[in-house]
């Protein structure tokens, strides 16, 4: 049985993801469209929140992916630091903009939902604030990648930034919690299925979450391929200029 590190070979990674990518992408489209249509058209309005409850199908999965994308970047950065596989560093780079967009979606849908429900677009609530800070971390990470020309240097620096940033993101989360008790309801979901989300809303939500996860995986595969190719091209051009 081949070890998982075989996929750290860029060529092997491109070949494998090329084969998997259409399936993941197709499945992502099916679950995402299916889940959103199910949620949008075929779920009742909540008796308290009215139809705004339908925003949950975008808000919760995107918030989930915003955090998980950072976690994935953290793991990829660790792999880069420990084993120095280029694909890993490039995957972290590829995931960052996706995570940033997910954070924006979570923030925007949350603001739109908050306007009628809490009577305000924005409150300095711990969860909201932490997400804003997370977004700043994404921006800094992406900006650092773009600022450095040498690929290996950029990978090293950004992976250290990702590690340090993770620690500070968690710290900020607790600091913000301490600073202001919030409006935001507690996690409305957990694995043991809390009672505050009824089944009618829960099942389409699961489908949407699966859709977002698949979408993320597909995008990261695709964007990592792009990064690998772009780097290979830079290497070829550099070699050509030398000879």
């Amino acid at each position: 049985m081949a070890s998982v590190w075989e996929y750290a070979n860029p060529k092997k990674f491109i070949e494998t993801t090329d084969r998997i990518l259409p399936w993941v992408a197709g499945l992502a489209v099916v679950t995402l469209v299916g889940g959103l249509i199910w949620g949008f058209f075929f779920t009742p309005a909540d008796y308290r929140q009215g139809s705004t409850v339908k925003i949950i199908y975008l808000h919760v999965p995107s918030a989930l992916m915003a955090i998980n994308a950072w976690l994935m970047m953290l793991v990829a950065s660790l792999i880069w630091i420990v084993r120095r596989h280029h694909v890993s560093a490039l995957a972290a780079r590829a995931a960052a903009p996706v995570g940033a967009v997910m954070t924006v979606i979570a923030l925007v849908t949350g603001a739109i939902w908050g306007q009628p429900m809490w009577g305000t677009w924005w409150a300095w609530d711990p969860r909201l604030t932490s997400f804003l800070i997370l977004f700043l971390f994404y921006l800094g990470y992406i900006a650092l990648w773009q600022a450095i020309e040498n690929d290996d240097t950029a990978a090293d620096l950004t992976s250290v930034l990702c590690l340090v940033g993770s620690v500070f993101a968690v710290l900020s989360r607790y600091a913000v919690n301490f600073w202001n008790q919030g409006l935001h309801q507690g996690a409305s979901l957990s694995m043991d299925k809390e009672q505050n989300v009824a089944d009618v809303f829960w099942y389409p939500l699961i489908v949407c979450m699966a859709g977002f996860v698949l979408l993320f995986v597909a995008l990261v595969f695709l964007r990592t391929q792009t990064e690998i190719r772009a780097r290979r091209m830079r290497a070829l051009l550099a070699r050509e200029r030398l000879s």
Binding site: L36, F40, A45, G50, S51, T52, K54, I55, L58, H59, S62, I105, V108, T109, I112, W113, Q115, P116
Partner: peptide, 15 residues
């Protein structure tokens, strides 16, 4: 969508 039609549509559109 009741009285919240704008909000729901807006969040879906933006996302």
């Amino acid at each position: 969508l009741g009285k919240y039609a704008t909000e729901v549509m807006a969040s879906y559109a933006v996302s």
